[in-house]
Design a protein around this nucleic acid. Structure first.
Lengths: 335, 335
DNA sequence: ATGAAAGCGCTAACAG
DNA sequence: CTGTTAGCGCTTTCAT
């Protein structure tokens, strides 16, 4: 059942049918009704491939993330999909992992599929700052379609960034710890992404501005697995710390497990903060104070920008949006 | 840059270029090399829309799930995407929520996009058993393309099911509790899906076969939010129970929180099991014993079946595969 | 082994 | 307001 069949049954030309399908005003109400009725009767659906071929678009966007099974990204993707769907777009999901070559391959695949735009979720797509060659594939993609970074930053034509102010959030949290008398704050991290770098800078900067030394020992990079974090902390008996700033909830929960198994009191003996305000933070015991970086807000903002751009209003949108994050206080902090 | 350009540059016809692109054996090695070189040089990529129009396929499958931000589904989808990608297929992700009309709408959208197959993750897509009219849209989809249910069951031509044996798993867990002397086992549930029904039957069946009564009070249906579960349990002071069989980890963690805030000893005073073996189960304190229903295995099985079917070997695959689940024992059980 | 040409189903410019 | 027609880029017979 194609447009010709419908045209014939309705006794009109295919152009008229096409106009009806595309809701053109240049059709009389009467023929419109007739054609619609016939389409309805026959359960006609326009062929998306043919339409795509003509319009060079299938109203599809690509969403890349390193790993949907991560709670933070999953939440982001759920929001993005739902908002895109409202706008009549479909989403091709790509879980790229963290390997450079795989990320690059996914981008070319997506470009070959002629997606209308690309969203990249996670700071792993912006290298550690933006100017290195590791992000060349992002710039290349931007030559063809608008690219949206969520929680990443890259200064380039046709790439639009939205991210939480990780620097400031970490600065604030660290400062509050110091003002509460903490002297040895452990910075617990699992990556060297742009976001991680921002957090580290916030941490160090708070230390410095409060006259505390930045100690290399107190910057610990580990794999993000709860038990492994706990065990590493347990083994490092040399390492003394009275508080933990973790760059992710999983790491923070690891620290909680460590404290619990050493029978340390939280927050008195050990003050802990996490990042992302995920389900983990209300699941642990005691419940975790965690920085909420507003995924939902970032997603909405991104979608709104995208719609403007896809409708030719690129000048209305900023390429760089930073939004403030704040600590959701629970039981692992004394401030 | 299209096939005509390449043909011209290579001094051959578009048919030859097409043959090279599709790796047809009916091209001389020499021209093949030449054409490939030219394509390489010019970074030529065949237009997927045009190809789709001719072949009526764009090597894309649809994946539906009620909510990717749920850890269990996120894991499933991560696996599915990665396996499909290996096979050269892209995935359109649809987060349908739980509403009937939305689920139906997504299916028609997906069919209109001419996907090659459809995967539905979660037992919400199989009604409460399979024969009611609520699953008609699934049957309709199956008229056009193969449909794969993960964790759902529906007996119908062209729909293929893979699910964990929730009945048996719940039967076993409940039985062990009884054999350990538990008398009042709370069945904590948040839905009436096919899977939930299976679990309930396993629970009741274990009770009966051990000569225990099935008490309506001890079947509690609640919303799956940790704190709300805890609070409901706290408020129901009339309700006496010495153990909890929860149909999801979130619910089980709610029960843990309840026990902790009443200073009940786990598992002595309250024995608890969850379902899905998610990150929550190692995050809580004490850590949760949880039934692992082998998402990964279900996903692999599904993809393998799908590949066979898409390659015309439908007779080789069973429409109904049930796999055993087992309890991962942690600290909330005494068996 | 290669080429010519007929679709695939739709959109849009153009003509009435 | 409606119809005619030329693409869109590729696959696939059917000739050669």
């Amino acid at each position: 059942m194609n447009i010709y069949d419908i045209a014939q049954l309705a006794g009109v030309s295919i152009a008229t049918v096409s106009r009806v399908v595309n809701d053109s005003p240049r059709v009389s109400e009467k023929t419109k009704q007739k054609v619609m009725a016939i389409m309805e009767e026959n359960g006609y659906t326009p062929n998306v491939f043919a339409r795509g071929l003509g319009l060079d678009s299938m109203k599809t966007i690509g969403i890349m993330c390193p790993d949907v099974s991560d709670a933070y990204m999953a939440t982001a993707i759920a929001h993005l999909e739902s908002r895109m769907h409202e706008h009549g777009y479909d989403c091709i999901l790509c879980c790229t992992g963290y390997e450079q070559s795989v990320k690059e391959k996914y981008v070319s695949l997506l470009l070959a599929k002629r997606i209308d735009a690309l969203i990249m979720v996670g700071s792993v797509y912006s290298g550690s700052g933006g100017s290195d060659s590791l992000v060349q594939y992002v710039r290349d993609a931007a030559k063809n379609i608008p690219v949206f970074l969520i929680n990443g930053y890259l200064d380039h034509e046709n790439v639009y960034c939205a991210y939480g102010d990780d620097y400031q959030a970490t600065y604030d949290v660290t400062s509050q710890m110091i003002e509460r008398g903490r002297k040895r704050i452990l910075f617990l991290c699992d990556s060297h992404s742009y976001s991680a770098t921002q957090k580290l800078e916030g941490y160090e900067s708070a230390l410095k501005s409060h006259g505390l030394p930045v100690l290399g020992d107190l910057k610990l990079y580990v794999k993000n697995r709860i038990h492994s974090v706990r065990d590493i902390l347990l083994e490092r008996r040399d390492l003394k710390f009275d508080s933990v700033v973790a760059t992710d909830d999983g790491l923070a929960v690891g620290a909680i497990k460590y404290a619990n198994s050493k029978l340390l009191k939280i927050p008195e003996d050990l003050c802990i903060t996490g990042f992302n305000n995920s389900a983990l933070s209300i699941c642990s015991d005691p419940e975790l104070s965690s920085v909420d970086n507003k995924v939902e807000e970032l997603c909405n903002l991104t979608i709104n920008n995208m719609m403007k751009i896809l409708h030719g209003k690129a000048e209305e949108v900023s390429r760089d949006t930073k939004i403030p994050c704040r600590l959701v206080k629970r039981c692992t902090t004394d401030f």
